[in-house]
Amino acid sequence: MKDLMRSPVVKMMVARLLIGLGTIAVISFVIYGVIELLPGDIAREVLKSQATDESVRAFNERLGLDRPFLERYFEWLGNALHGDLGRSLISDVPVSELLAQRVKNSAFLAVLAAVLAVPLALLLGILSATFRNSVFDRATGITTLACVSLPEFALGYLMILFLAVKTGLFPSLSVIDPGAPLLERIWQTVLPALTLTLIVQAHMSRMTRSSLVALFQRPYIEMAELKGLRRRKVVWRHALPNAMGPIAVVITLNMAYLLTGIVVIEAVFAYPGLGQLMVDAVARRDIPLVQAASLIFATFYVSLNTLADVIGIVTNPRLLYARK
């Protein structure tokens, strides 16, 4: 055990996890503190024409703005750790209640998109790197460039236009009933999930391809060819084991990207998820709700990035087997 703790890999991993935790802590501080950036009186700014002295006082009291900032922050953070994220300014319902089902819906959409996107992207990325400059590579390159260049919402509308309105294959807007059977839910979620899949796989396969292409230029790949190995074996035996780390990092980074892509896609399909809720809250300036949603997004995002770093560390043979 003592030996394990002394290994540089474990040390680096622990350090990375601590940095991740620290980052979340700092981000929570920023999320809560941004409100202080606002010049002047936040209550009047938010309430606008309805700002009477009385309503302003009530507003400040509700947000606790009459107390010192640090005291408020730690109370908010403490409550958040216990699952209490305050009450909505608009509907006066506990934020956690509003969020619960939305988070589940978003997670369902994200997982569905990831399940489709990851294998597709890896396959395309590996094939185009292996057959670099072939017709297949070029076709994939042009398609992914188009997917990356098209705004996310436009891709969503194109899906609606061609797969829902013109052909009637899928429902254009997502009506999610949490009690519905799984297949029904998937059916309702197919279009937004497909859209997300297209976006994410485009980024992911491009990154996979470029990290593999860089790898193929290493001398040991040339050596494997000079030993007389077939191309397929060179790729599978010599390139891919070294690419596992970088590819895993690419996947997790893109999962983080997918997470934020959800915000726009949910708006296009009126999908009742966390992103949609946050966009509405922003429009209504429902600040506790926006802060809570930001905190949840940021936590997932930082966790995925931390995971990417940890994977990068544990897949590096130079770190795993120290010099003797």
Partner: peptide
């Protein structure tokens, strides 16, 4: 480390 889109929303909301 901050998700860009989410933070843009937060900042613009406030």
């Amino acid at each position: 480390a901050i998700p860009q889109k989410v933070f843009a929303l937060l900042l613009l909301a406030i």
